[in-house]
Computed example of a mutant assay.
Amino acid sequence: MPKSPWGFRGILQSRHVVEKLVCYSIGNGSKIDFWKQLWHPDGIISNLSSDRSLSECINSNATVMDLLHEGECDPILHLPHMKYLKDIIDRGILNLREENFHIWKPNENGEFSIKSVWHSVRLKKPKPPWSSVVWFSGAIPRHTFTCWLAMWGRLLTSDKLIKFGIQASPFCPLCIHGSESINHLFFQCSYSKWIWETILRKLNIRRSKDVAEDVDWIIDQFGDKGQLSTAVKLLFQATIYNIWHERNNRTHGKQKNAGVGGVIRNHEGRSIKMFSLKVRIGSIHLLELQAILHGLRLARNHNLTNIWVESDLLVAVNVVLKKFKYPWKGIPTLAKIYKVLAGTNSWCISHIWCEANSVADFLSKPDCGIKGDNLNTESAPPLLLDLMALDSMGAIYTRL
């Protein structure tokens, strides 16, 4: 059936599973296929019989009625395997006065239902302990589905993609520093952990244990039905859903606003030029590569030939250093970076923690209040001037 919908063709391919659940009550046998349908208690005749003489004497499309003569086996067909037909006659199963009808074996009353099909073909397993946190009345379907995938560990995080041989950044796009996995996102990541703890504080709930244990905690404390129980479960699912949604936005470049920024310093650490640009939306790693490219071009335009690049995204640093390959979307930007670097006398690139990169971080925000690709430091807002002054004085930044 080439014109049939894909879903319907898939259902048809499962007929062999359902056929075993259907049997026939034989009336006159006019509509029952002798060979292919389950009309005999022992099974389908084509599966029971391997005698070629029987298949040569009886037409492949024959019905049970075709082999009868006045309620008995046709006397012309004296074959050993006609015992199947004689058997139902001797048992009194055959009733020429009635029509044939189907019997659906999974139901005691013999009637068909979709529910009985599902219970017959599905693989039955005991409910997991967290089922009450995922499936409950009033849950939002899309939140429930995402939470269900997370509980089974089926969300395609970077660690899984890498195992499948797909090139992906191993770092969490939310906190940048951790390796992305289900356990990291929910809730070892500092970003997601802060969100969940903030929600709990709004509910006046104080938790001292690791938030990764909160599923068990919800089951113990809010397993019973009630408004507070439903509210906590809804908030938990909404947190899972929105963290995963934000992760996808950052990974696949679906943020509504995106910007890149950077600052050019001389050998004394004094800021001499800076840039803050709105760019085409991309992944956080691609945005960092674009920022590096623009900073290199700006430095070369001011005849700087000995360049030291600092980036607070370790993935971008390793990509430029060719420590691992980047997906194809970043190849054109990388080629441009290497072209600019080829025109320098010397260059190096290193990782810097975001706490010590506050000026570039400020300039990369879309709403920082200053935009341009070749900005003088005198045009910076007061807050940015204070940050640059701290840098020029050699301020020491501590990462807690």
Rank of each mutant, 00 (worst) to 15 (best):
L289H: 03
I199A: 02
W6K: 12
N109R: 02
Y84C: 00
M1D: 11
D214H: 04
W347I: 09
G372D: 11
A212L: 07
S25Y: 08
K225V: 15
V319D: 08
Q290K: 10
V309M: 07
L314T: 12
D51K: 00
G178P: 00
N204H: 10
H177D: 15
H184G: 08
Y338K: 05
E111Q: 08
W196N: 02
P128E: 13
S276I: 08
C147G: 01
F324E: 10
H143I: 08
W104G: 01
E19F: 04
T251C: 01
V232H: 05
N242R: 06
H184S: 08
T146L: 07
K202M: 13
A380R: 01
A139G: 02
L235M: 08
L313G: 03
Y326W: 11
G71K: 01
N95L: 07
K225I: 15
N109S: 06
Q237C: 04
E310I: 10
I243F: 05
H119D: 14
H351M: 05
C175F: 01
K160Q: 14
I281A: 07
W217Y: 11
T333G: 03
N301E: 12
A62Q: 04
Q13F: 14
T63E: 12
N47C: 09
V279A: 07
P75R: 03
W347H: 04
I58A: 02
V263N: 03
K371R: 11
E72C: 02
H184Q: 04
Y326S: 06
L287S: 08
L235D: 10
N376F: 10
D216V: 12
I264N: 03
V121W: 11
L228Y: 05
P5E: 15
H252R: 03
C189Q: 07
L203M: 13
W35Q: 01
L384S: 06
R280A: 15
T333D: 07
N95Y: 08
C348N: 15
K339W: 14
D214G: 02
S46W: 08
W130G: 03
Y397V: 14
L54A: 02
I337S: 01
S271A: 14
L77F: 07
F164W: 15
S364E: 13
V279G: 06
N204V: 12
S181Y: 06
R250K: 12
S181G: 08
R265P: 01
P332Q: 05
G43H: 06
L54C: 01
K339S: 13
W39T: 09
C147T: 14
R206G: 10
I352K: 10
A139R: 02
K329S: 15
L400C: 14
T344S: 09
S358Y: 14
L293V: 11
W148L: 01
L68W: 03
Q167L: 14
A62M: 04
S190W: 06
Y326H: 09
C354Q: 09
D51Y: 00
W152L: 08
K193W: 14
D90C: 06
Q221N: 10
G165K: 02
V211W: 05
G369K: 03
Y241F: 07
S49K: 00
N318M: 11
A380M: 08
K233E: 12
L277Y: 02
H119W: 13
L298I: 13
D361H: 05
I103D: 07
N257P: 00
K105A: 12
N249V: 09
